[in-house]
């Protein structure tokens, strides 16, 4: 991998790119987390990033969103061709980037309905979506207060459905969620990403990060990447990569995939 000039993920996805990340180095506090990460996501594509805990997956999504705890020290992030590094979190959201948080904060006194209404959701649309996601009785509850694991994830998806981002970032959408909820969540994530539309018409793109990969049993992704120690190390078809990880664990999986890739390149 050393000495490469171009991001290999370009080989796996094609322009036009909604997101281009080049040689991204990111610190959180005193810790260097991302160490020269490259990623290109094409319009209408869904990428999945696998990686063990602590590999920097959440940092990557938080950095794309512009969360203040992450400092970019080198590299660039371009959204629809323009660098967004200088933009604040809300400006990025307004441009069309949305993040489903893994562990959203509890906000006392702010009701889910109030937030959705602030995001320009009409009353009827809010009621309808909440009903479909089984969150009708949560609309008048305080944000994330006493929500179960599954309810938190569904509430995040509900907020994104009102927000309608073009690039959807999903941080461990299936963690702490039971089987029944995963099916439901996957269906709505699919809807959010227009997975039912033909690729030519599909405008919405996404990145899902996961360390178990369960969600892939219910949702088709286009490209998978494996991330370790702050870098994306290899790429492949989601099911292949997941199979390798399941069989061999992350470390061996990466070694094996890399070997396979170099064999293919040699051939």
């Amino acid at each position: 991998m050393s000495g490469k000039l171009e991001d290999e993920s370009k080989l796996y996805d094609s322009p036009p790119y909604i997101l281009e990340i080049e040689d991204l180095w990111v610190k959180a506090g005193d810790n260097l987390i991302l160490q020269g990460l490259d990623l290109h996501v094409g319009v209408g594509k869904l990428h999945v990033i696998f990686g063990p805990n602590g590999s920097g997956k959440s940092t990557l999504l938080g950095t794309i969103m512009g969360l203040p705890q992450f400092q970019v020290i080198k590299g660039d992030i371009r959204f629809k061709g323009k660098s967004i590094l200088e933009l604040s979190t809300d400006e990025r959201a307004k441009l069309g980037i949305g993040l489903a948080f893994q562990r959203p904060p509890l906000i006392k006194g702010v009701r889910l309905r109030t937030l959705l209404a602030t995001l320009n959701g009409s009353d009827s649309a809010i009621e309808e979506l909440a009903e479909e996601l089984g969150l009708k009785s949560h609309l008048d509850r305080e944000l994330n207060d006493g929500f179960s694991g599954g309810e938190i994830k569904r509430s995040e998806i509900l907020q994104l459905m009102v927000q309608r981002p073009e690039l959807v970032l999903l941080d461990e959408p299936e963690s702490g969620v039971d089987l029944e909820n995963i099916t439901l969540l996957a269906r709505f994530i699919g809807q959010l990403l227009e997975r039912d539309k033909h690729i030519v018409e599909r405008k919405r793109s996404g990145i899902i990060i996961t360390h178990t990969g369960h969600i892939l049993n219910y949702l088709n992704a286009d490209i998978a990447h494996v991330m370790m120690e702050g870098k994306i190390l290899c790429h492949g078809s989601p099911m292949d990569v997941l199979r390798q990880i399941k069989a061999k664990g992350y470390k061996e999986c990466v070694e094996c995939l890399l070997a396979e890739q170099s064999r293919e390149e040699a051939a």
Binding site: L67, D90, T118
Partner: peptide, 10 residues
């Protein structure tokens, strides 16, 4: 920052 990620200014 959670609310800003939804598009609300600070």
């Amino acid at each position: 920052s959670y609310l800003m990620a939804r598009g609300l200014d600070e």
